[in-house]
Design a binder for these strands. Structure first.
Length: 570
RNA sequence: CGGGGCGUAGCGCAGCUUGGCUAGCGCGCCUGCCUUGGGAGCAGGAGGCCGGAGGUUCGAAUCCUCUCGCCCCGACCA
C-alpha cells in the first residue's frame, strides 16, 4: 500500500474534544472519526487494527472450543421480559418500536437471545457442553459517553457463552476462558491483570475482570504484591474480626455520655472540635433501599462501599437518603444521626464491631454520644463487610498491605449458573432422563476498548507505538525525497522486495518534505521505518528506525529484508 | 439527571462585555514557483446561513427567549 492511497487524514492539532491520549491519537492518526457522541467510524488503518485484535481473539476462542455465530443486534422485548431485565436494565437500553407498535431493543448484551437459541435446539446432555461466541456491535445508552472509544454508546464486543451440564463443566469452561483471555491480552501487547470483581447487573457468582493498568482507567483496583490477590475495590473483601475480642471489649466499656457538639455535622468538624482522630467515630448514614430507610454504620475514617451495602441488603435500588427523609428518620438535622434509639434496620460494618467507645450522633440537634457500644446500646440488624478497600489495607489472603491502581476493564468472565437458563427454561435431559437447567457462563472482551487500551499502554509524545501483532502495517518505507530518481528507484525496489516477502509494508510515496513524513510515521506508529536518503544511499545503505525505542540502525541494501524480518519476527 | 463550559471555514481559536463598514487569525486545502533528513519559504486563491428557531432594533455573530448538539465534573457501566 502507498500512503498517498490510504484514506486516513492525520491531524496536526489535538481535537478539543479528546481528553485521553488514546482518543487523541486515534483521531490524529486517522484511525477513526466521531459520528456522534459515543459513536465512531473506523477508517482503514483503525479497522485493520481492529481486525487484527479480532483475529487473535478468534484463534484463541477456537482453541478453547468456541464456535463463532452471529446473533441479532435487534432483539424483541418479550425475551427481556422473561428475565425481567427489560425494566432492570432501565434507561441504559436503547429501545425502539416498529410500525406495529411492537417493542425492541438494540442488544446491550446477548444472554437472552443466545439462551433462547440454545433452548430451542438443545435437548440432551449429549449435545453439551457448548461454547458459542460472536463478535458484535453492542448498544448502551450511556449516561455519559467518554474517553472516545473506551466508553461509547456503540461498541464492539466479543462475547462467548458456555452451556454445561454441571458445575464441574462450568468450572472447566471458566478456566478455559480465563486462560484464553490471558493469552489474548498478552498477544495484543497488553499487560492485563485479572482481578476479582462484582458481578453487577449481569449477575452470577464468580467473576474476574481483566484490567489494563493505566492512570486514565475508570476502575479502582487493589492488589497484593506479596501474594496474587487482586480485586476491584467494589469487591475487595475484609476479613471479619475475631468474635471473642468483641464480647470482652464491650463488657469493659463505660456508660454512654452526651457530648455537646453545636453545629458540628461532619467527620472533619468532629475530629477538630473534640480533638480526637476519625477512627474513634462511627459514621451513620441513612440510605433508601428500595425506598425504605435503613442505617449503615462504619468507622469514621473508612469509606462505605455502596456495592457491598446493596449486596448485604439484597435490594434493587440504593440511594443516599435526602435531607428530609434523614430528618424524619432520626428526628434530627442531617449530621447528627446515630444508631441509638433508631427504629429502622441497622447494618453494621465489621470495623464497628470492635468499637466500644464509639462516638455517634445522638439523633438530636447539636448532640453526640460517646462510648456507644454495639449489643449494649443498640442492636445490629446485620453485620457485614461494607468498607471500601484502599491502598494500605490488609490483604484478605495474606494480611500484607494492599497497593492500589487504576485500570481499564478490557474483559470480564462470569459464572452465571442458572440465572438465565431457569427463567428462560433452557433445559436438557440428563443420562437419567431427568430435566435440568443448563449451567451457563459468559465471557466478554471489549474489542474497540482493547484497541484504545493498547494505545494507552504503548505510546510516546510523538504518537502510537503499536505492538507488532496489532500494528496496521509492520514497515513503512520513507524516501526523503521521492522526486529524486535514485531514492525513488531504491525505495520502490525495497518496497517490492518486502511485498514479495509478504511483509505488511507501506511506501510513503508522497511528495512531502521529510519532516512531514517522519511525523506521520511516528504518529501512526509503524513498528519499523526504513529511511531512504541521500546520506547513506551512495554506500548502498538505508536507515532502519525502531519505533518504540527510537533505535537507529544502518543496514546495507542487500541485507535489509533479512535484518528487518529478524527484528520483526525474531 | 444535577453542576460547569462551549457551538464562528476541514482543525485550533479571536471577535460578543459596550450591537454598526466587506467577520478575522494560525494550521490545513487548491494553483504556481522554490525547497527536500523532523510538520519549510514566496506569490496568488477557494472556503462561513457565526448550531437552529423566534424576538428586540433602523441595524444582531454580539442583546433576550426557546431549542438542538458537543465537551468536562459527579452519581451508573464492557
Amino acid at each position: 500500500m502507498q500512503t498517498s492511497q490510504i484514506y486516513g487524514p492525520t491531524l496536526r492539532e489535538i481535537p478539543a474534544e479528546a481528553e485521553l491520549v488514546s482518543h487523541q491519537f486515534m483521531l490524529r492518526a486517522g484511525l477513526m472519526r466521531k459520528s456522534t457522541a459515543g459513536v465512531y467510524t473506523y477508517l482503514p488503518l483503525g479497522l485493520i487494527v481492529l481486525h487484527k485484535i479480532m483475529a487473535i481473539i478468534r484463534e484463541e476462542m477456537t482453541s478453547a472450543q468456541g464456535q463463532e455465530i452471529l446473533l441479532p443486534i435487534m432483539q424483541p422485548a418479550e425475551l427481556w421480559h422473561e428475565t425481567k431485565r427489560w425494566d432492570d436494565y432501565g434507561d441504559e437500553m436503547f429501545k425502539l418500536v416498529d410500525r406495529h407498535k411492537r417493542q425492541f431493543c438494540l442488544g446491550p448484551t446477548h444472554e437472552e437471545v443466545i439462551t433462547a437459541l440454545v433452548r430451542a435446539d438443545v435437548r440432551s446432555y449429549r449435545q453439551l457442553p457448548l461454547r458459542l461466541y460472536q463478535i458484535q456491535n453492542k448498544y448502551r445508552d450511556e449516561i455519559r459517553p467518554r474517553f472516545g472509544v473506551i466508553r461509547g454508546r456503540e461498541f464492539i464486543m466479543k462475547d462467548l457463552y458456555s452451556f454445561d451440564i454441571d458445575e464441574q463443566g462450568l468450572h472447566e469452561s471458566y478456566q478455559a476462558m480465563f486462560q484464553a483471555y490471558t493469552r489474548i491480552f498478552e498477544r495484543c501487547g497488553l499487560s492485563a491483570l485479572p482481578v476479582e470483581a462484582d458481578s453487577g447487573a449481569i449477575g452470577g457468582d464468580a467473576t474476574h475482570e481483566f484490567m489494563v493498568l493505566a492512570d486514565s482507567g475508570e476502575a479502582d483496583i487493589v492488589y497484593c504484591s506479596a501474594c496474587d490477590y487482586a480485586a476491584n475495590v467494589e469487591r475487595a473483601e475484609f476479613v471479619a474480626p475475631d468474635v471473642h475480642t468483641i464480647t470482652n471489649d464491650s463488657a469493659n466499656s463505660d456508660c454512654i455520655q452526651e457530648l455537646d457538639t453545636p453545629h458540628t455535622t461532619t467527620i472533619d468538624e468532629l475530629t477538630s472540635a473534640l480533638e480526637i482522630s476519625a477512627d474513634k467515630l462511627i459514621k451513620t448514614m441513612i440510605y433508601l433501599a428500595d425506598k425504605k430507610p435503613i442505617a449503615a454504620l462504619i468507622r469514621g475514617d473508612y469509606t462505605l462501599n455502596e456495592v457491598k451495602l446493596q449486596k448485604a441488603l439484597d435490594c434493587q435500588e440504593l440511594v443516599l437518603a435526602d435531607a428530609q427523609t434523614t430528618e424524619q428518620v432520626t428526628s434530627a438535622p442531617v449530621g447528627f444521626a446515630g444508631p441509638v434509639g433508631l427504629s429502622i434496620p441497622i447494618i453494621v460494618d465489621y470495623s464497628v464491631m470492635t468499637m466500644s467507645h464509639g462516638i455517634t450522633g445522638a439523633n438530636q440537634r447539636d448532640l453526640h454520644l460517646a462510648n456507644v457500644t454495639l449489643g449494649r446500646d443498640y442492636q445490629a440488624t446485620a453485620i457485614a463487610d461494607l468498607r471500601e478497600a484502599k491502598s494500605g489495607d490488609p490483604c484478605p489472603h495474606c494480611s500484607e498491605a494492599l497497593e492500589s491502581a487504576r485500570g481499564i476493564e478490557v474483559g470480564q468472565v462470569f459464572k452465571l449458573g442458572t440465572k438465565y437458563s431457569e427463567p428462560l427454561e433452557a433445559t436438557f435431559l440428563d443420562e437419567n432422563g431427568k430435566k435440568r437447567p443448563m449451567i451457563m457462563g459468559c465471557y466478554g472482551i471489549g474489542v474497540s476498548r482493547t484497541m484504545a487500551a493498547i494505545i494507552e499502554q504503548n505510546h510516546d509524545s510523538d504518537g502510537i507505538c503499536w505492538p507488532i501483532n496489532v500494528a496496521p502495517y509492520h514497515v513503512i518505507i520513507v524516501p526523503v525525497n521521492y522526486k529524486d530518481e535514485a531514492q525513488k528507484n531504491v525505495a520502490d525496489a525495497v518496497y517490492r522486495q518486502f511485498l514479495d516477502a509478504k511483509v505488511a509494508v507501506v511506501l510513503d510515496d508522497r511528495h512531502e518534505r521529510p519532516g512531514v513524513k517522519f511525523k506521520d510515521a511516528d504518529l501512526i506508529g509503524y513498528p519499523i521505518r526504513i529511511t531512504v536518503g541521500p546520506r547513506l544511499l551512495p554506500e548502498k545503505q538505508v536507515e532502519v528506525t525502531i519505533r518504540h525505542n527510537k533505535e537507529q540502525l544502518t543496514i546495507h541494501l542487500d541485507e535489509v529484508l533479512e535484518k528487518v524480518s529478524r527484528l520483526l519476527y525474531g
